[in-house]
Amino acid sequence: MARILFFTPYPAGRAPSQRFRFEQYLSLLAAHGHQYRLAPFWSVATWNILYQPGHTAAKILGLLSGFGRRLGLLLAVPAYDFVFIHREAAPVGPPIFEWLIAKGLSKRIVYDFDDAIWMQDPAGEQGLLGRLKWPQKVGAICRWAYKVSCGNAYLADYARQFNAHTMVNPTTLDTDLLHNRVRDQAPAGPPVIGWTGTHTTLRHLDLVWPVLERLEREGQAFVFHVISNAPPAHMGLRSLRYSPWRKQSEIADLLQFNFGLMPLVDDPWARGKCAFKALQYMALGMPALVSPVGMNTEVVQDGTNGFVCATDEEWYQSLRRLLASPPERVRQGAAARRTIVEHYSVASNTANFLSLFQ
Rank of each mutant, 00 (worst) to 15 (best):
R14D: 06
A15V: 10
P16N: 10
F22I: 04
E23G: 03
S27R: 15
A30G: 12
A31S: 15
G33C: 05
Y36S: 01
Y36G: 01
L38I: 15
L50K: 04
P53S: 02
G54N: 10
H55I: 00
K59W: 06
G62H: 12
G62V: 06
S65W: 13
L75A: 10
V77L: 11
P78A: 09
P78C: 05
D81C: 02
I85N: 09
I85K: 07
I85R: 10
E88M: 10
E88H: 07
P94Y: 07
P95T: 09
F97W: 13
E98C: 03
V110E: 13
D112E: 14
D115Y: 13
A116D: 01
W118G: 01
M119T: 14
A123K: 10
A123Y: 01
G127R: 06
L129Y: 01
V138F: 08
G139H: 11
A145N: 09
K147T: 08
N152F: 00
A153I: 01
L155T: 10
A164N: 03
V168A: 04
T172W: 05
D176N: 12
D184K: 01
Q185H: 15
Q185G: 10
Q185I: 11
P187A: 13
P190C: 04
P191C: 09
W195P: 01
G197S: 09
T201W: 02
R203M: 10
R203T: 11
E213H: 12
A221N: 06
V226W: 02
I227L: 08
I227C: 00
S228G: 12
N229R: 03
N229Y: 05
H234M: 06
G236E: 07
R241G: 11
R241P: 10
S243N: 07
S249A: 15
E250G: 09
D253F: 06
N258F: 00
F259A: 06
L261C: 08
M262R: 04
D266I: 04
P268E: 04
A270C: 15
A270K: 08
G272S: 05
C274W: 10
F276K: 04
Q280C: 14
Y281E: 04
G285Q: 03
M286R: 11
A288V: 07
V290D: 09
G294C: 05
M295Q: 15
V300N: 13
G303D: 12
N305K: 08
F307G: 04
F307N: 06
V308R: 04
A310T: 07
T311N: 15
Q317T: 14
S318T: 07
L319S: 09
L319C: 11
R320E: 09
L322H: 07
A324Q: 14
S325T: 11
R329N: 04
Q332A: 01
R338C: 03
T339Q: 14
T339A: 04
I340P: 05
S348I: 05
N352P: 00
Q358Y: 05
